[in-house]
Design a protein around this nucleic acid. Sequence first.
RNA 1: GUGGGUGUAGCUCAGCAGGUUAGAGCACCGGGUUGUGGCCCCGGAGGUCGAGGGUUCGAAUCCCUUCACUCACCCCA
Length: 421
Amino acid sequence: MLITGIKGINDILPDDVGKWQWVESVARRIFSNFGFQEIRIPLLEKTELFARSIGESTDIVEKEMYTFPDRNGQLLTLRPEATASVVRAFIQHRLHLNPTMRKFYTIGPMFRHERPQKGRYRQFHQINAEVFAMDDPMVDAEVIYMLLVFLEELNIPDVTLHINSMGCPDCRQPFRKSLTEYLGRVSDKLCSDCQRRRLTNPLRIFDCKVEPCKQLVREAPVLLDYLCNDCLSNFEGVKEHLTSLGIGYTIDPHMVRGLDYYNRTTFEALTPHLGAQNAVGGGGRYDGLMETLGGPDLPATGFAIGMERLILLLDEKIEIEKDSNRLFLACLGNECQKRGFQFAQQLRLRNIFVEMDYESRSLKAQMRRADKLGATHVLILGDDELAKGVATLRNMETSVQEDIPLEGIVEELLQRLRSAM
RNA sequence: GUGGGUGUAGCUCAGCAGGUUAGAGCACCGGGUUGUGGCCCCGGAGGUCGAGGGUUCGAAUCCCUUCACUCACCCCA
């Protein structure tokens, strides 16, 4: 019985790895320009961390987490998102005492036990950015700007920005009340799912795709109308700064995010090219989370980007530039192969790409392989050459061959191969 | 968890009104050049037709079961 991988947990094969590395390098470059520093957090955390931060009644916590007891009976969870861990690390290491520790990014896999489909997997990868201890609307705008700059740099097509404000606990209270009242009045017209949502998590009804519900939602009270003065001026500030940076946006009063910790400005970068999914990235402010997790009462904002979705959206045409020259060593006969084998190691130590065959195959076969590997040069080492004290260097592009004396050949090759880089 | 679609060579797929040895393209290996890649020509290897059961003289093809993949619902990156 063949052992296969786990459903929704995929391999990334060498042919695709180039794209991933490229995406990561662009993220590192851009985020670093914005003052973000990389932080690496564990894949495993105590279950309680996620339960408390994400919210007990969210789908993630209720039914999507990979949770199990370790050998000591401690309940652990494979992280379903990164923010909770970054906040935890920030608190644990008292980083708020260090003023250079404010902006972080992290890249890595997350785990959610959902049914896989296009753009959605059980192990998926996110690029996260988080900013702590800053609540000026300028910061919200800058974070959003950085997200868009990044997507732009990757040439992700047809990205639109949707924003909303989730208010604060103060304004959410009266809003919740009037929303529940409204939903109570129209409850018999809601779909069965929304019937349930009405009682468990009324805000979720804004996400419903059933037509009658969408109708009703249009008439429902929206949080934006209930914002307190502070939240309102804050939201205005964010919009102003976005505009000043030349960012177009759509205000979507019905946008609801899946995690409970969000407040004030939330946002999503959407594209129509992801099948049933539409978000490539999303995030928002989460001012209360740090205190909830036992840390200082510091504001925070951030976002997550779905890397699989990014990869799906990448232009097929992008090509990862081929690095430097590649030398293939073609050896004929046992003696020559031994010489070549040692020779290859020497060149590699000098930072040159060298590949060779380990079976003794015909020169034709070796040439073919050299071509497949994209070798720019082939060094042919056979009895004829050894007898003359040379090796034949073939330029694969021009097909020009010349003899190189074995004496001092390493330095000679280094020069030739490096100069063309 | 629910529903639809699809499972034939490493990959993309043809074959399916049941009928001799299951095919193609690409990829792979070898030869055409006793030591020279790409293009071309010739040859070769590679398949328990997802698995199990049933119908039949005979099943890749029909029926049942099951598994996997995939898309969608739910929800999200």
